[in-house]
Amino acid sequence: MEWAYLVLTLVSVLNFATPLLLAATGELVVEKSGVLNLGVEGMMIVGAMTAYFVGAHIDLEVCTVPHFSGVGCLVGTSSLPFERFAMVVLTAGLAGVALSLLFALLVLGFRSNQVATGLGLTLLGLTLTNALGAGSGDLKVGRVETVLGTTVNEWGIWGPLLNMNPMVWLTIGLCFAVGWALTHTRLGLIIRAIGENHDSAHTLGLPVVWIRLGAISFGGLCAGMAGAYLSMIQIGAPLWKEGITAGAGWLALALILFATWRAERVVFGALIFGFTLALELRLQTLPGLPSWFVPWLLPSLPYLIPIVVLTLISLDARAIRRNAPASLGKLFEPGS
């Protein structure tokens, strides 16, 4: 095994891990505040579509080659500068926030069931993008510029890694920052207190509903931005198709279980998940593996590992109490 191949594999791993990690970071805060939002997949896909369509309109003037057989123009040659890409990502995040606010309205305002509302939000996201996402074939979206550009070869085997989109590093940083904030800041303490026991938090005079509204919006922001990574960065060129998330939102939820609600473990878990995803096509031609390993076990691992980890943690009543928000998914009824 050569070093160059390992670095390239790491690039693939990070490429798969980043959108999962970003969405999971947002959902971690939501769950820490005691709310379970199963709408991650929905918010992510709306973010992905928004990014692509905004990217198409923000980038119009760089498209100079005339139409070819009725579709678009040269996608490969134009490039989207970072500052515009940042706007695209932010808009996608805001689309996620918009969806999450609907969830917040129902769950916090109308006291609806969190499970049903979250699933409804996913359904809404998939339906919305199904209805509005048609006609993307005629759009022109430029490739997001890369850090090293044409100088990538000067960096040797490290070139592909250094050339990754900055979102990768920012996401890892964000996750650690959120983990730190949850444990070391006053706001983090308040969020955790509310997630632990919303009734006593309410008695202490903490604004349960407002804090949760903030957490839910943060979750929407992260999920929407994660969607932008999927449609703008993941395959190396902008691409939108219906159902592009393909379960990434659910993987993000599994990731939090795997990490038992701890930020540094979320990062670690994201790498493991990314690794299993990247391994599938790399191990396919390896002789000697049992026939069920690559087609069945490998793709199932991101769902099986969290079940095992969660079970082991749950067996130890103290461990689960230390990390899992006790009020997760429970109805908050302030006495009047």
Partner: peptide, 24 residues
């Protein structure tokens, strides 16, 4: 070197297959 993606249209998986092949 043949890699199977078991789909006719799955851009993410096709991209990953291309990446894995180029890496190899």
């Amino acid at each position: 070197d043949i890699r199977w993606v078991f789909s006719w249209f799955d851009p993410a998986k096709e991209a990953e297959a291309a990446t894995a092949l180029i890496d190899a």
